[in-house]
Computed example of a mutant assay.
Amino acid sequence: MSLSAPKLFAINGAPFSVGIVAARFNPDLVDALLHRVRTGLAAAGVPAKRITLARVPGSHELPVAAQWLAQGGRRDVIIALGVLIGGDTNHHEMVGQSVSHAFQQVALATRTPVINGVIVADNLKQAQARCTGRVNRGAEFARAALEMAALQRALGRRS
């Protein structure tokens, strides 16, 4: 866990188009993250009409949906949301690692930043703390997305 968050600075989100891919597994938790992401984007001025949402069955399907949105070419950044909770095996860790690597591949191949908003937790209590708790991970994902979209524009990657 990181204890030293970066200093925040104002970003006008009005010019950016954002794609969001969200898993339907663990719907209460993912929907809480999604609500917090949307609230963060709206607070920064991203118009609702410039946000595209695609729902997929589970976290393992997020990378391909992110790639489809990125290949459409009309989004400055993609945010991927899912929640993986441990059980009797380490399947949640394997899926978490797999999708994390795939998000990087998508971002590099499409030149569209992909924000990894997949929560990997050992138990429900940990997942709840990260999705609905005091620390607003959804707002952090929205913030990271806007920073990457702004950086991409500043470097002349998109207009």
Results as ranks from 00 to 15, higher is better:
Glu140His: 06
Gly133Phe: 00
Arg55Met: 06
Pro47Tyr: 07
Ala48Cys: 00
Gly156Thr: 08
Ala121Trp: 07
Val135Met: 04
Ala102Asn: 11
Arg75Ser: 01
Ser59Phe: 13
Thr132Arg: 07
Leu155Gln: 10
Val99Phe: 06
Ala42Cys: 03
Leu108Val: 11
Gln67Ala: 08
Val46Phe: 04
Glu61Ala: 07
Lys125Ala: 15
Gly58Cys: 08
Arg50Gly: 00
Ala150Arg: 12
Ala80Val: 04
Ala109Leu: 00
Thr112Tyr: 05
Ser17Trp: 01
Lys125Cys: 02
Ile20Asn: 03
Ile11Ser: 01
Ala107Glu: 05
Val99Tyr: 06
Thr89Asn: 06
Gly87Leu: 14
Arg36Cys: 04
Asn136Val: 00
Asn116Thr: 03
Arg74Ser: 10
Asp28Trp: 11
Asn90Tyr: 11
Ile20His: 02
His60Arg: 07
Val56Tyr: 09
Gln105Pro: 03
Ala145His: 00
Asn90Pro: 13
Leu34Thr: 01
Asn136Leu: 01
Leu151Phe: 12
Leu29Glu: 13
Val21Lys: 06
Leu29Met: 15
Arg111Glu: 14
Ile119Asp: 07
Arg158Asn: 12
Ala144Pro: 06
Cys131Arg: 08
Leu81Glu: 06
Ala14Gly: 05
Val95Met: 01
Ser17Gln: 05
Ser159Met: 05
Gly72Asn: 15
His92Phe: 12
Val56Ala: 07
Phe9Thr: 12
Val64Tyr: 11
Ala42Phe: 04
Lys49Trp: 02
Met148Leu: 15
Leu81Ala: 05
Gly40Asp: 07
